[in-house]
Nucleic acid binder design. Sequence first.
DNA 1: CACGTTTGTTAATGCGTATTAGCGGCGTAA
DNA 2: TTACGCCGCTAATACGCATTAACAAACGTG
Lengths: 339, 339
Amino acid sequence: MPSSNRRVTQQDIARMTGVSQTTVSIVLNERDDAAVRIAPETREKVLQAIRRTGYVADPIARRLAAQRNRFLGVFTYEPVFPAGLGDFYHPFLVGIEECAESIGCDLLLFTSAPVIDGRRRIFSQDNRLRLADGCVLLGRWLDPQELARLIAEGQPFVSVGRRDDAGGPVPYVGADYPTATAAQVRKAVELGHRKIAYVGEGSGPESHADRYRGFVAAVAEAGVTGVRLRFTENVLDELRRQECTAVFVEEFADGALLAAEAGRRGLRVPEDLSFVALGDPTRPASTDLDFTGYRIPRREMGWQAVEVLSAILDGTGGETQRLLPCEPVEGATLAVARA
Amino acid sequence: MPSSNRRVTQQDIARMTGVSQTTVSIVLNERDDAAVRIAPETREKVLQAIRRTGYVADPIARRLAAQRNRFLGVFTYEPVFPAGLGDFYHPFLVGIEECAESIGCDLLLFTSAPVIDGRRRIFSQDNRLRLADGCVLLGRWLDPQELARLIAEGQPFVSVGRRDDAGGPVPYVGADYPTATAAQVRKAVELGHRKIAYVGEGSGPESHADRYRGFVAAVAEAGVTGVRLRFTENVLDELRRQECTAVFVEEFADGALLAAEAGRRGLRVPEDLSFVALGDPTRPASTDLDFTGYRIPRREMGWQAVEVLSAILDGTGGETQRLLPCEPVEGATLAVARA
DNA sequence: CACGTTTGTTAATGCGTATTAGCGGCGTAA
DNA sequence: TTACGCCGCTAATACGCATTAACAAACGTG
């Protein structure tokens, strides 16, 4: 029954069935209150018309009127479907989609967010996150200012990855980097390592700071020496000068490069130098080595982020800040320290 | 100046500045038509109030008024974010997102589409596709019945991949398999192949039928023999019995398996047996061979699908059925035919 | 000085839905 | 007969914005 190209509205259904728009709305929402009720025959008439026309409620109007439309937004500062394969963010999205499906929500990707200075913005002309009931924020880094504003406005959202307070506590589902990193340090110490290097920034994004924090704490606890080095041209020289026997790399890809360079210089991995990768590669990395370290529970994080968001929307209480354990990876790059 | 917890509206700004809501709207949209204009001082007053309050337009109301929600739906019969990496559909989605971003639309993933008999349905309780202004349909196979209904209901949509008519012409952006396949046949014939096998179904999804059609036509044109074989346990026996010197595989992964088996039986590829892969792997395939064949312009197809959809929505005419050329891949599995 | 014309602003309306208050009719009890 | 309550439904309104028609004031023009 396609007549015009206009969307079918409740008004249309109403006219077709000879009832009021209100009645259609009531039938649609299955309101069987004592307050408002509809005779079974009327209800059936309306339902038939709905089925015949394929009508569905306009999500926009629905959200304007009822403040909800069963859309969950996904915001990232970068493309959701990145060009590079084997992408770091992919597993998060798998988890997000799975959970969204399980609670019957559609996902809205904010591809229209305006790009200014090379990255997307949450706020500009308008705050499009509001198009959805709530949002999942994805990305290693999130602008603290925008975050603060979201909190101030009371926008329901959950960050994937721990976030520092930004004018208020930020709901998140993160990975427990400190614990996972500390565990690796202890393992290294058990294998006789007394001077361990942390290669990376150790600051900036929370995920970096957290790794380093766990590193520093565990090193101190074990009474061994830890040094932090940036990843530069001559890190390897510095490592040897300082006589480090194990290297903890913040970024997997850097570790791959470093290990390859070590190999070229005649150093055997792990016999001469041990490597520990603190998490999965965020950039494509090619290596033959089976790195020791841990794995970030990305899919689970995505899933739980939606779970937390759902709880927030329902007003069901519950913890809005969750840290998930990382899974240790045995690997083959951590061995007994050279004498 | 956030007084209550209610959001600031244009009405609020209007009251603060002593103008009407209309004026605020006009200032906001920078409408400097001849029809409607605002005095510089008034404009400035309003802008100041906007800056002071940090007002941003409610995107929901904005889109309700515009009668366009600027959502583009993406429907797939499988999860949009598949668990398997290196996924076949990924590049399509990259293109879709890129184009959506360029025209300022958000993407709606129908994760809530009900799964019945192991696959999602477009139609069931309601037609969720209507939530968006228009939709992109993705997948090797699309239910012709559902397709027909979409057409009948006048739903704006575009299929990625050519579709046969289904109660009317289907808008699509597809790959030109016939041409690409025929080109490979000619190449093989030039290299002396006189008996060529097509391994696959050659029917079912349009993409299979199209490949086979191109194959059959080119073989006839060249006056050589073409045989079609199913991919079974003993295809290889059959191939040798029929003395085929080249194998065209519909599905990359099958080709990988077949070539490996050939190797185990002491056949050299391509010296003893040539292989041509008709497109990219839709299933994960592992092989050391650099297959000759062609590449499906997936990203471009995704991009153009959104482009066509956008044209349909705007009422801008233009071709709604496009076939894109496949890029030939030289590879190393097609050689001069054995004497 | 009557009559356009331009300029700056607003009242009214629509977008599609959800909600609330209320209305007419009917049955039952006082 | 009146009073009251219940049932089934609808009119009116709100949500926040964009658009259109209209209007008042200032400004020429003949």
